[in-house]
């Protein structure tokens, strides 16, 4: 396999591509976290737990 300084292994993506994918994962986690928090707050209003 030829060594390409722009690519990161084992994915074979360039650094910019890998960073972009990583950013999607971080953003996705934050957004899903926000939805989970909102759903839990509303679920608590409907039926409080640990009461």
């Amino acid at each position: 396999m030829n060594y390409d300084p722009d690519k990161v292994w084992p994915s074979g993506l360039t650094l910019r591509e890998a960073e972009e994918l990583h950013r999607h994962i971080i953003d996705g986690t934050r957004v899903f976290g926000f939805f989970a928090l909102l759903a839990h707050i509303l679920a608590y209003f409907y039926s409080p737990w640990l009461g």
């Binding site: 957004v31 899903f32 926000f34 989970a36 909102l38 759903a39 509303l42 679920a43 209003f45 409080p48």
Partner: peptide
């Protein structure tokens, strides 16, 4: 993601809207 988030929150929101449970 937005569609998923909306549907994940929606049932609890509707139950609270209707004043159900506590």
């Amino acid at each position: 993601m937005l569609q998923f988030g909306g549907f994940a929150v929606m049932p609890f929101a509707l139950l609270v809207l209707a004043g159900q449970g506590e």
